[in-house]
Design a protein around this nucleic acid. Structure first.
Length: 575
DNA sequence: GCCGTTTTCGGCCCGACTGTTTTCAGTCG
């Protein structure tokens, strides 16, 4: 059983407790427990196997630990089943409609017997909601709008889409004369793999004028709410943007508040509270006196903490690390010296070897590995041994023509169902860079999949495992394998793990990066570019690495061409 | 239901906006 499943069950208990209007702190306890489980780097299943004490985990006490054991064994727990008997399960779904919380959901259910989305829609249209106490016409409208939003937006947006909106919004805000300063915070700043909305902080003298000018942004679809402090809009593409005004003296605390994560904020507020202070978006205050707020650094320092990079703010040990000055120095995009995963026209890329190289040189790189597909990927015009040898020859000719750049003759070879590589190992051994990836049979059971990957890792000719989890965000689940065994084998065989920077992959995911780093594996960040512009995916991969606590030294394509070459040739025979 | 730098009971993060009210509850982030 996966951690997500356990966390979902706990959240379900919380949902139903909310509907039952149970003690709010009890509800919060279940939410916190669910979040803790979700954020674990290890599987609860394994922890239980090892007879570990779950109450040692944050926010898990005796009661929840018992329930987790129950959920693991039976798929549910008695408390949850009991709640389901008392509260219609479907109401929990209705609660997901924006504007409809637990109270209103229960109210419409009790008064009108509504249990389904369709029933709710009908009631709104018929105007029977407005007669309930505390509700009116506007409530009906908002619920209908909420149902529509829920259906269309279906949650989160890719980091790439969010970046496009953020960039064009930024260009607009730069032109607004009444805005003195603005910045994007939120999960976008934390570089999460997907983004729910954009949080934009604005400093302006004349707020109402700034609001007017901001709302003139061409992509604004509708204004959701509008106050003196905050303006919320939905863009035409469905992405929600919160604009929040602040004064210069509170810039740092506002950035912290809106950057989150929520769990990180709560951890910091509790820390402030212990000192008898209060922390909110307006500053760190003691009684009526403001202790800090102008910059993020000032707030962290006043709390006896080092400044924490946004990507680490998940309440996953970063506060403790900041306290003991043990924070990592996360890798930066400027540390990257080359890209080791790109395709050319030889397989399914759109550009020639030369064009890809030019694009890499324009970006200031020292090297680039051309890694076209192998023959198993027929849809991508994968190369067989003969074509690959000719292709490698061509790459080396081009490489000869550029003394100040290293073009590596490489391949992205398929890991077949058995674990055998798709190309002759003698041919692979003659290449500069071999990335091995899975592109088929994603549904093998965990044992078979683990052995499959281990066979490739131990082949002796592979430098790197490409997009190790094979997931596509929101489309395809990660493959099932024993990650710890694979990570250990990679370390022992000198095989790198790739962080694939394609925004729909971002694979390895951040939590696995951190886990693999602790095992001692080396990483490579590759864009998997299929055309020149795709080389610009690199920052997305760097974002994942930063969220995974990786430093420059952990990632081998931060090495200069000279050092990398030494490593690759020196590593021959070792893997 | 969890938890402890005010520790085994009594707290639990904090503020803005809307729509309904006429002082506030519900929702959201």
């Amino acid at each position: 059983m996966e951690n997500t499943q356990i966390a979902n069950a706990l959240d379900e208990v919380a949902d139903l407790l909310e509907l039952s209007q149970a003690n709010e702190f009890r509800i919060r306890a279940y939410r916190r427990a669910a979040r803790s489980i979700r954020g674990l780097s290890r599987r609860v299943e394994d922890l239980l196997e090892e007879k570990k004490d779950l109450t040692k985990l944050a926010n898990i006490g005796k009661g929840t630990a018992d329930k987790i054991r129950e959920i693991r064994e039976t798929g549910t727990c008695r408390r949850l089943e009991e709640l389901k008997r008392q509260v219609p399960e479907q109401l929990a779904e209705l609660m997901k409609v924006p504007q409809l919380g637990p109270r209103k959901a229960m109210q419409v259910h009790k008064a009108l017997g509504i249990e389904t989305m369709d029933g709710l829609k009908k009631a709104c249209r018929q105007g029977s909601i407005r007669d309930l106490p505390g509700m009116g016409r506007k409530t009906e409208e908002n619920i209908l709008k909420g149902i529509k939003t829920l259906a269309s937006a279906s949650g989160r947006h890719s980091i790439k889409a969010a970046k496009e909106y953020a960039d064009s919004l930024g260009r607009h805000l730069d032109r607004v004369s009444s805005i003195k300063q603005w910045a994007v915070a939120g999960s976008f700043r934390r570089r999460k793999e997907t983004v729910g909305d954009l949080d934009v902080l604005i400093q302006a003298k004349d707020r109402s004028r700034a609001t007017e000018e901001t709302l003139a942004f061409e992509s604004v679809g509708e204004v959701v709410s509008r106050g003196k402090e905050r303006v919320t809009v939905r863009l035409k593409g469905g992405l929600q943007v919160d604009f929040r005004y602040f004064e210069p003296g509170a810039f740092g605390s506002a950035m912290m508040y809106f950057t989150g994560s929520k769990a990180h904020n709560i951890a910091l507020r509790k820390r402030a509270q212990h000192k008898g202070w209060k922390l909110n978006e307006y500053g760190l205050v003691k009684g009526k006196r403001t202790l800090a707020g102008k910059t993020e650094e000032s707030v962290y320092h006043r709390l006896n903490l080092a400044w924490i990079p946004p990507e680490l703010r998940e309440d996953q040990g970063e506060v403790e690390a900041a306290e003991h000055e043990e924070l990592p120095v996360p890798i930066e995009f400027d540390d990257i010296r080359g890209d080791l995963h790109v395709h050319s026209k030889a397989s399914d890329g759109t550009n020639t070897i030369e064009e890809m190289m030019d694009a890499a040189r324009q970006r200031g790189y020292q090297y680039l590995a051309i890694t076209d597909h192998s023959k198993a990927v027929t849809v991508a015009n994968g190369l067989d041994e003969k074509r690959l040898m000719n292709h490698a020859e061509r790459i080396r000719e081009v490489n000869e023509s550029v003394p100040d750049f290293w073009l590596l003759a490489g391949v992205e070879v398929d890991i077949l169902k058995s674990g055998k590589l798709d190309l002759d190992e003698d041919v692979l051994a003659g290449l500069d860079w071999v990335c091995a990836s899975i592109h088929s049979y994603f549904n093998l059971d965990e044992k078979k999949m683990t052995n499959r990957i281990l066979t490739a890792v131990r082949s002796g000719v592979v430098h790197c495992i490409g997009h190790p989890c094979g997931r596509m965000i929101g489309q395809r689940d990660p493959i099932a394998f024993d990650v710890d065994r694979v990570f250990e084998a990679c370390r022992d065989n000198g095989v790198c793990l790739e962080i694939n920077a394609q925004p729909e992959r971002l694979d390895l995911p951040d939590t696995y990066c951190r886990r693999a780093r602790n095992v001692g594996v080396a990483f490579v960040i590759g864009t998997d570019a299929h055309k020149q512009q795709n080389l610009d995916f690199m920052p997305f991969g760097v974002g994942v690495a930063r969220r995974g606590w990786l430093e420059k030294k952990d990632v081998i394509n931060t090495r200069t061409a000279r050092v990398l070459e030494k490593r690759l040739t020196g590593a021959q025979g070792h893997g």
